[in-house]
Design a protein around this nucleic acid. Sequence first.
DNA 1: TCCCTGATGACAGTCACTGCCATCACCGTA
DNA 2: TACGGTGATGGCAGTGACTGTCATCAGGGA
Lengths: 188, 188
Amino acid sequence: MARWETGTRERLQAAALERFAEHGFDRTTVAEIATTAGLTERTFFRYFADKREVLFDGQDHFEQAFLDGLDGAPTAEPMALVRASLTGAAAFFPDERRPWARTRQAVISSHPGLQERELLKLSGLAVTLTGALRDRGMDAVTSALAAESTMTVFRTTFAAWIEDGQTRSFTELQDAVLDRLHTLVAPA
Amino acid sequence: MARWETGTRERLQAAALERFAEHGFDRTTVAEIATTAGLTERTFFRYFADKREVLFDGQDHFEQAFLDGLDGAPTAEPMALVRASLTGAAAFFPDERRPWARTRQAVISSHPGLQERELLKLSGLAVTLTGALRDRGMDAVTSALAAESTMTVFRTTFAAWIEDGQTRSFTELQDAVLDRLHTLVAPA
DNA sequence: TCCCTGATGACAGTCACTGCCATCACCGTA
DNA sequence: TACGGTGATGGCAGTGACTGTCATCAGGGA
């Protein structure tokens, strides 16, 4: 380790986000990002599969948060598992992270290609979750629906969390969204 | 009209699907597709914004099917609207279409970039639906959840329809999935 | 001290995609 | 019938993302 300057990946990510936010995704070349980080374009592509991927690293940790929540679930009742994985996810979004999340999300929202990548990541997460739910004895269709519904609640909550002034926590918002889903599908 | 050979767009789409299915998406160049259709690369990009888009034309008609279903809804009760739009969507998938849908889906499933685009299209549809539901008096969060849930049911149904031997119709499968969603969120 | 290993640089090449201008077939009109 | 307008297409050069390959170079271990 550390034969060369450390934190190469992080430097590239920081440089990319900064330039994307400032000049826009399309007007930023990979060569620029690399130069800003004191590296070359070729090295950038050794760390990230493509230009968009630099904004989506750490997917593993993100997925793990959902799975950790699942592990903490007391029962195997489907909706309880959905709640549990969402609780796990909430740990990934403390209030301190909100400003950074806003910047990043603004960049993503401004570019269809980045939205695509975000959707693909969430889709991959849904697949992972579906598998984890099946491992807990849930049937295929229900697992898929539960995983997708988890993503629905998460997505909706995240959007609200980004928009929210500063008052409500991720968990707080998420509980409200989950209640709404219940009311929608099973009106009193 | 018809000063040049007609059906340019359709010829490009057919040529693209055929070559993608045969040789794979990555090993097919846009120039090849265009040549197969008797045109040039430059013309391809006049019809489709990018190489992937050639597989995703007709999004408008697809969205319209959901909206048409919505228009036929008797009430404004949220879940009834979800059902109605799904009924509209089912009209888009008659059994005759299944073989073609399978080929197309196999191509899409084999390439992350195409999956991304498919997800973006469905996401766009969810946005459209959310708006249509809000127009019918539904609140913002419920509209978003209803639209996303509609997509969840549709996606799950579509996957089952593609896998299904040949026996069950789209509508049939969709009703079953919708029941499962209800059971999941509001267990007896 | 020397060799090995892993991170980086350098460079050429492919291909998606764009801007710009030329061409050419058809249509309506004088 | 000759003519100008219009819209679809071709040709071509240029940019930038991404890849394969080889050279380089710093540090760790034998």
